[in-house]
Nucleic acid binder design. Structure first.
Ligand code: FES
Ligand code: FES
Lengths: 151, 151
DNA sequence: CTGTAACTTGACTTTTCCGTACAGTTTGAG
DNA sequence: CTCAAACTGTACGGAAAAGTCAAGTTACAG
């Protein structure tokens, strides 16, 4: 299983904006440069984030994107959910018309139960992390990792 | 995020074979009919399952697929892992050449840590379920669900 | 005012993933 | 021996995702 690029890049962009400070903002070129993505691609992701209400854009020469809420209040799960949909939705079982009645709507499908369990496990992890948690990196420097022992 | 169809169908096929009993086997047309998938697609999935060592095929007029191990010993996580790869692998960070050193190999990347956490949560759920668990459905009948209260 | 730097939008191209088709090989029943 | 029923492998076409491009709008600096 894997995340879509929209989901991943969405998180990355929000984290970068969060690092600009509580009332700071970043432009598309800035985010592009810092995250190593093309400007066009960043623009596409940010458009979705704006439509979903996570960021606001100001136009013009001094424009940029800013968070609509404090980074501490944006749960990662929200973003993933808004950008990527669910693993198991209500239509899921409808798409299978297998010959066995038991795997349709009889409520006794092991696959269905397992999928929901996985979805819950993922959501639990994603919902207890916020963008702020990801934004405040420990900022370990290479020197600390290598030569921290002596000298 | 979502599972690939190979991952899902792989599980479904193994569950069907498991229901044929410990030493039973099923043919492609049988699985196809029971699971509601095309025969060509079932064949494709089973080929991978065979190459990964989960099933053995016997050819000829009385052929079919059987499990190589008891269903109780096949963990769902194994199958997903063999068919779909990992959410976060070692090359993951190499694919990002962002401008910030901190999100490359400095060991202080919040995204990387989160992804691993999600991967672990998924694996925990998938590894405590076996194909046998999914194969033995409670077989709840519609009457039990509706009129179990009286009469 | 004017020009530049930024956001906005839709369409387009590329890539990847799925499902299917088909031509082959094997095996056992009759 | 013959043939039908099964597996095996490759190759093709469509659909969805991912990424790109170009033309337009907005707003501030100067
Ligand atoms: S009933 Fe939904 S997957 Fe089986
Ligand atoms: S995602 Fe790997 S270092 Fe940031």
């Amino acid at each position: 299983m894997k995340f879509s690029t929209l989901e991943e890049f969405g998180i990355r962009c929000l984290v970068q904006i969060a690092r600009a400070g509580p009332s700071g903002a970043l432009t598309i070129p800035e985010i592009s440069e810092r995250e190593g993505l093309s400007e066009a691609n960043v623009a596409k992701v940010l458009r979705l984030l704006r439509q979903e209400g996570f960021v606001v854009a100001s136009r013009g020469k001094t424009g940029g994107y800013a968070l609509t809420r404090p980074a501490e209040e944006i749960r990662v799960g929200e973003v993933i959910h808004a950008l990527g949909g669910k693993l198991y939705d209500d239509e899921f079982c409808e798409r299978h018309s297998g010959g066995e009645e038991v795997c349709r709507h009889e409520g006794a499908c092991g696959i269905q139960a397992l999928w929901e369990e996985v979805q819950d496990a993922i959501d639990r992890v994603l919902n207890r992390k916020t963008i702020a948690d990801l934004a405040q990196t420990p900022l370990i420097r290479r020197e600390d990792l290598l030569g921290g022992r002596r000298s």
